[in-house]
Design a protein around this nucleic acid. Sequence first.
DNA 1: GAGTTTGAAACT
DNA 2: CAGTTTCAAACTC
Length: 775
Amino acid sequence: MDVVSPELNSLLPDEIMDTEAIAMEEELPAEHLAAPPQSEPEPQQVPMETEVPEIVSLCPATTSMQLTSASTDAQCSTSSGTQLLLAPSAKTTGPVVTQNLPKISSVTVPANHQLIINKVASAPAADGKSPGTAVLKPEGQKLLVAGLSKTGQPIMLALPHTWNKPATTQGTGDVKALPTQIKMVTTVGKPVIAVSSASQLMGSSTTLQAQQLKTLQITKKPPVSTAGPMITKLIITKALNNKGLSSPASAAPVVTGRVVTQSTPVTPPRTLTIGETVSTVPQNASGNSKVAISPLKSPSKLTVVSVASQSPNSPQKSVTLPLNMALGQQILTVQQSATTSPAKAGTSQSTAQTLKTVGGVGTSQFKTIIPLTTPPNVQQIQVPGSRFHYVRLVTATTGSTTAQSGGSTNTNPSIQPAKPVMMNAAVRMSVPIIPAQSIKQVVPKPLTSAAQVVTTSQTPQRLIMPATHLPQIQPNLTSLPPGTVLAPAHGSGNMSYAVLPAPYVTQIPQSAFVTLTSSSTFSTATPIQTQARLSLNGLSTSEATSRPRKPCNCTRSQCLKLYCDCFANGEFCNNCNCVNCFNNLDHESERLKAIKACLDRNPVAFKPKIGKGKQGESDRRHSKGCNCKKSGCLKNYCECYEAKIMCSSICKCMGCKNFEESPERKTLMHLADAAEVRVQQQTAAKTKLSSQISDLLTRTTPAITSGGGKLPYTFVTKEVAEVTCDCLLEQAEQAELTNQPQAVAERLILEEFGRCLRRIISFAGKAKTDCPINC
DNA sequence: GAGTTTGAAACT
DNA sequence: CAGTTTCAAACTC
């Protein structure tokens, strides 16, 4: 099992992981496997709240690591003598446990680096392997790894009692058994590997908590298992910087996830088979390297990286990274075929077949991210100039995929042919370090055409669907609404398009969309349908539907001119107050004409006005600049001000006060900030009040019951009173901040008090209503 | 909520 | 390209 090759590592963004320090070795030198003394370490108690029993080894930059798949032993050796500890997967249940116990080939600790692996319980080496192999008992033992970072800070991780619990709880070794995790953590530039139960949270080590970590989590599917599934997750965590321990605030790094499958021409291809499924296929040591990187929004929330194994003969490897959508974690799934085998069009389907979303089965932490009704294909896309890899998730039957890849003229074996990218918002969000502008989408062309790429600069996806009955429109591809995807008309080089803004996909019921696509006359609807599904599924429904957008109020433009914000944003009107709106599917032809007209007038009409500067948001500026004359650019009339950016040299405004040093602007900003803070505080207070009341209701229901109906004041407990006071104080502060007269302030406070009372009464009444029988 | 102001978009 | 008109959002009362 390979983890990360240096070549691959070089391609990975630092934000994700840095595997420079990890080199793979085929064999673990026995001399580096110093047997841990029999002395059993203290059964160190792992704080329950952390729930992360881990085995940690610290490896220096030169550390080599091997995950041997031939046995249950996980070994780590380092040329420098530093340690890497790989514990074998948790294994198994029942009777076979003792025969396939995970073994720790313990790690030697070099002079200055730390690793001390103390097996808690050693048993006679069942397989008689190298001395020094510690055999872990299946249950109730802790493996402690103690080490010191360069800074001298000790690292202590313990193997929990539940080391083998996953399998045990699964009884017969169900594939859904909670996998053991191996975490590789780099501390102070050294990778650390830890093993923990998959259901447990990271962060048991206070040392680790004190570092800014990034985690690569890999679920290892061991080779042939004679005693049930062996599931090991390898989490490679790297300190974001070498400041390591000096960054106390870095305990909870947000690491976006992605899965990378890649092989390198230099390093012998290796296969890291990851998955929770039981596999009887021996790990293919000659396969392509696979690396699964799991993002973590929080170190306490692990995202399983699952990599489905694939036929060794297949040049492409599929990787799926499930994530906990509920936690807002997202993934970027990356697939890359072997460099020696450029992606073949035909491989995508097999990819889809082998692509599995695993992990998390039976564990609430792990969820399938893309609940497509059909197995998705994952196509890798390499964006020029980007260190990131993107994938396109498509259904398997599309012919356009074949055409696109087949038509590619890219002859560079190291660069994948341009492929369509279907990046839904969720995916984009999952990798915030990827600017939206970098996302590129392929414009499907007739089957004989090479793929074209449209650079998008805005997150919403839009679909331009064939509409053969409509006037032909050949929009400037570079000027289409951002995110636009074009689909060719049926079997013809003459292209017609229907523009479907992304919101349409999310605005309309899925059934409606399905009807639309299924009834359309073009044969290449599959990609669109797929994208639609992705938009519906990949983008969380709540996110899609709740995305705030002001309803327009157009009365004369029919919402077909750029006056209309909906139209200007490439969106359909939805829940707007417009009159005689044509910005909908019912007026598709008119809408298309209007789009064309806008593009004729201004080829970049649909491009975002607020571009992104070179150095991030601070450099954002209006693409055209404003022309304000009377507002001083300090009102929302000004597009710059509205976008919360300062006017720039390209603005033609008069009397501009929207510049950095402007006192007026600062004053406004302060007021705005203060208002925002107040709103947040108020919201928090009210939420707290509601929570308190709810909690109180829960606890006081018996009293209500016994009392035959208590009056609302029953609910005015100390907690409620305190929260109510908070609300009142907040109101007072707000009045003070806004320089309200005392009378007004008093009135505001009283009104707030009235609201609090009403809420209390409301909850009280609700409580009585909710339990009419008992009360 | 009606009326006014404002500046972008559209038009000439 | 400049000037004018149209338009809808922002703003005021």
